[in-house]
């Protein structure tokens, strides 16, 4: 466990434990998240990801341990933590009866911001929802709803954003759009903590990856560090076949949405390298 990041860490978790009745979900979780980084919490269903995110976003109290978000203790200073964060839960937290625009205005007003209308307008444009802005959210597709959900989370520019399985149930294009947004946020200095059970997503998106398994973090490091845990890679020549995803995206591409696919990772790794084990 690294502790030397403390001064620049946006999230600091020490010994967090949580049980529901007899079921121990978290058994002492420790990690640090550097400010402005993307820290993916990787784990299978039931690993405790959502419980951890709910504790960090003040929705749930831990049984033991401490968690500090943006310098504030989640147990002792919950309202200051709430000022610092945004949560996009597993299920899109939008008001179905309101329109997309009204949803955004609602959150902007609850965050006491000036000119909620202009904020809503800008976010609708940024998430290509302008045309759908005056329709009820209940008429939105899964991808649109998720985009609206994330747009609502960005209002007020909170320094820390939790995204609980942000791409579950999305089609590949919508998934790329979410990834693009997450990278943009991190580039602008926001700390983003996505949870995912999708290995590909963690690999593509995160600066650091922590693997949560049976209630503890069993590994935590950069992708390179995690790869180094296995025996050194041997070189094999494999014919590069396009994946079904490549084919699908090439076929449905309509010009705008696919920039991400060619944009590559921030650290310059070539994506095609994935095929070589």
């Amino acid at each position: 466990m690294e502790t030397d990041q403390a001064p620049g860490s946006a999230i600091r978790v020490r010994g967090i434990e949580k049980s529901f009745k007899d079921l121990q979900v978290l058994r002492g979780v420790d990690f640090d998240v550097r400010t402005g980084s993307v820290f993916a919490l990787l784990g299978s269903n039931g690993a405790g990801k959502t419980t951890l995110v709910r504790i960090l976003s003040t929705l749930l109290k831990a049984d033991a341990g401490t968690a500090v978000v943006n310098g504030f203790d989640v147990a002792a200073q919950p309202s200051l933590v709430r000022e610092s964060i945004s949560l996009t839960g597993q299920f899109a937290a939008v008001d179905e009866v309101l329109t997309g625009r009204e949803n955004l205005v609602l959150i902007a007003r609850l965050r006491h911001l000036q000119d909620p209308g202009a904020i809503a307008e800008a976010l609708l444009a940024r998430f290509t929802l302008t045309e759908a802005g005056n329709r009820k959210a209940s008429t939105y597709s899964g991808g649109m709803r998720r985009r609206l959900d994330i747009a609502m989370s960005l209002i007020g520019n909170p320094p820390v954003i939790f995204l609980d399985e942000p791409t579950t149930g999305l089609d590949p294009q919508a998934r790329l759009e979410v990834w693009q947004t997450v990278r943009g946020l991190a580039a602008a200095g926001t700390t983003v903590l996505p949870t995912t059970q999708d290995l590909d997503e963690a690999e593509t998106l995160a600066d650091r990856i922590a693997i949560l398994h049976k209630g503890t973090i069993i590994q935590n490091g950069t992708l390179a560090e995690l790869k180094a845990l296995l025996p050194p890679a041997k070189l094999e020549y494999v014919e590069k076949q396009p994946s079904l995803e490549d084919v699908f995206l090439a076929l449905v591409e309509d010009g705008g949405g696919i920039d991400t696919a060619t944009g590559g990772r921030a650290d310059g790794t070539v994506q095609a390298g994935k095929e070589i084990q």
């Binding site: 929705l59 709430r82 945004s86 949560l87 597993q90 299920f91 937290a93 959150i107 965050r111």
Partner: peptide, 13 residues
């Protein structure tokens, strides 16, 4: 039931 309640609960309201 819906996620909107959790959103409100995680906001400074």
């Amino acid at each position: 039931q819906g996620g909107i309640f959790e959103r409100f609960a995680s906001m400074p309201i």
